[in-house]
Nucleic acid binder design. Structure first.
Length: 271
DNA sequence: TCTAGGATGAGGCGCACCGT
DNA sequence: ACGGTGCGCCTCATCCTAGA
């Protein structure tokens, strides 16, 4: 049973408000800056200046917070080099209830205080999502479809009939020209030991061997690791080479600074 | 009345600079 | 090599005005 106030609340919200709630549901934690970049782009026909866009973002976010639809976390989040840290937003209890009513979900998501490493990793993943949408808006990518966790997870039957779950950080379909590239994406903050990376690559190999994805798509998506800096890229590539069982060409490792150029196609992409 | 932008300022943080 | 300080940049916050 939904309280009667929820219908009135939905009627009060603009399509942009609802889109923000959808993004927060899908990506869980978004900074003020993320939401500004996604929904308040700086353009001649929308917001002419960054300051105007930021203020507009703040107006909307504080209104949604006032209505209990969203809330913000306290505490710093990694990746910001200067200035104050900014707020990180998530769905509030009213917003979560409203989303369940809009989309017909039955299960409730438990909202607990996320750990610092989780938040930093989530911020890095969401940075990528925001950048993908910006590249689409700027025309560098024609189309981008993204599945976040847990939609991007894949279950399969492993050795001895044991059910296994492949858990990429992101699944993305990127259309550019005639090419439609499918990616399983892993965002690496250099916090995992290299053997763990190799082990994870082995999970992809095992999943690919089931042929499940190939039957659905015709191909197996490429696996893209995005990591911190070139030395880490070199270390990860070297680690992946140590396992002769890993198929060549299945894994791509790039640094975060190379993402733009990579996605614009100057370095190609499998698919 | 609602939404958007201009102006302005507080506060936080990184960084360069300085003296020790 | 340090630790302290000031500056610049950024986010957050508020008040005001303009236009649909």
């Amino acid at each position: 049973m939904m309280p009667p106030t929820t219908d009135a609340l939905i009627a009060k919200l603009s399509p942009r408000d609802l889109a923000i709630l959808d993004d927060l549901q899908q990506f869980r934690l978004l900074s003020t800056r993320h939401i500004q970049r996604l929904h308040f782009p700086i353009a001649p026909d929308t917001h002419r200046t960054a300051a105007g866009a930021t203020k507009a973002t703040w107006r909307v976010l504080t209104r949604l917070e006032r209505d209990g639809l969203i809330s913000h976390l306290q505490g710093r989040i990694g990746g910001v080099r200067q200035g104050s840290q900014g707020y990180v937003w998530q769905l509030g209890s009213t917003g979560e209830r409203l989303q369940r009513q809009r989309h017909g979900y039955k299960t409730r998501r438990r909202y607990t205080a996320p750990s610092q490493p989780f938040m930093e990793h989530r911020a890095a993943v969401n940075d990528l999502v925001v950048r993908l949408r910006e590249l689409q808006r700027e025309g560098d990518i024609e189309r981008v479809e993204v599945e976040a966790e847990p939609q991007c997870w894949r279950t399969y039957t492993g050795p001895h009939g044991v059910p296994q779950t492949l858990k990429p950080d992101l699944y993305a379909v990127i259309t550019r020209g005639e090419y439609e590239n499918h990616w399983f994406i892993e965002v690496d903050l250099a916090s995992e030991h290299l053997p763990q990376i190799v082990r994870k690559a082995g999970v992809y190999r095992a999943h690919a061997a089931t042929g499940l994805e190939q039957r659905r798509l015709g191909i197996y998506p490429a696996v893209l690791w995005i990591t911190t800096d070139p030395p880490r890229v070199a270390a990860m590539r070297a680690a992946l080479r140590t396992d002769p069982g890993l198929p060549k060409g299945m894994f791509t490792v790039i640094a975060a600074s190379e993402v733009d150029a990579f996605l614009r196609g100057s370095e190609g992409g499998a698919g």
